[in-house]
Design a protein around this nucleic acid. Structure first.
Lengths: 152, 152
DNA sequence: ACACGATTTCAGTATCACCTGAACTCACTG
DNA sequence: CAGTGAGTTCAGGTGATACTGAAATCGTGT
């Protein structure tokens, strides 16, 4: 891992850390975006980034559970490798639909306590969630078409 | 603040806390969604939610800076009131565009360290950011049209 | 100018999540 | 079956941050 790579990992890590993710989690993500080869073992990642084996194990598990990273086996070698999952970014956008629905549910749950004064404080949120729930699937379709056809 | 309201504030707070926001921040948001009247002073909010004046001051400032809450003056009363900003939710969605661009910048910043092996790990992210940068503005327009025309 | 309530600031405390390091498990090898 | 190396688990240290309570500040009316 050279200087430029280290710098880029730090850039990515800093970015995602702003949104509340753990430092190690973000560093692993950044490193898996640019490391060569794309497949690495836990021990290698720990060595590359200067993290403990325990931390790598825990945060890598988090990545796998989120669907960002997958485990692969290299022919002839029996140690487990990890790599960024193809289509990982697309997956993240797809999973956004779940959060949209959750927002809608929160808004609708206000029923019993819906205020007389300016009820749009709540209803606007519900309408917005409904709108996105409708728009998101076709948007994803267009997105996939755009990506597979090779853009810009 | 009755039982049902307390329960709803807790529901909203629990939801937003999952995404890493401070408890007090989320409770204030939930309360400002349903309190009556919609405008409240800091002292009232502190009393309603059982928070210290200092906490309310700090977290309310955070809401104002994010554009979720605004200060208003009620005629005849000189104490400051706070309320959920009309169109606050729409604003949140609009500001997403900034994060989309930031993602694209991160992806493009990989230039010097772009891997030979599976470079799509990075380029896919750039393509995805570009796609959303193009789609987001018209989406926002449709959204606004949808909201003003009274949906569902 | 003074008094009073509202708000801000800040030092101190408590809480919580990350990270480490060491012990443990498991799978494979000689 | 002992040995090795990878990965997991977990107790404990550390650092960051939310929250409190009190003192300072601000803004307004008398």
């Amino acid at each position: 891992m050279n200087d430029a790579q280290h710098q880029y990992v730090d850039k990515v890590a800093t970015f995602f850390t702003m949104f509340g993710s753990a430092r190690a989690w973000a560093e692993i993500l950044g490193w898996l975006m640019i490391c060569e080869p794309a497949e690495r073992t836990q021990a290698q990642i720990a060595e590359d980034l200067g993290l403990s084996a325990g931390t790598v194990s825990t945060q890598l598990r988090a990545h796998v559970q989120l669907g960002m990273v997958e485990q692969v086996r290299v022919r002839g070698d029996r140690t487990q490798r990890y790599r960024l999952r193809p289509g990982a970014w697309f997956e993240v956008m797809s999973s956004e639909l779940g959060r949209i629905h959750a927002m809608g549910d929160i808004a609708r749950a206000a029923g019993p306590v819906l205020p007389r004064d300016r009820p749009e404080r709540v209803t606007e949120l519900a309408d917005l969630a409904d709108f996105f729930a409708r728009e998101w699937p076709p948007l994803l379709e267009r997105m996939q078409a755009n990506l597979t056809k090779g853009p810009s």
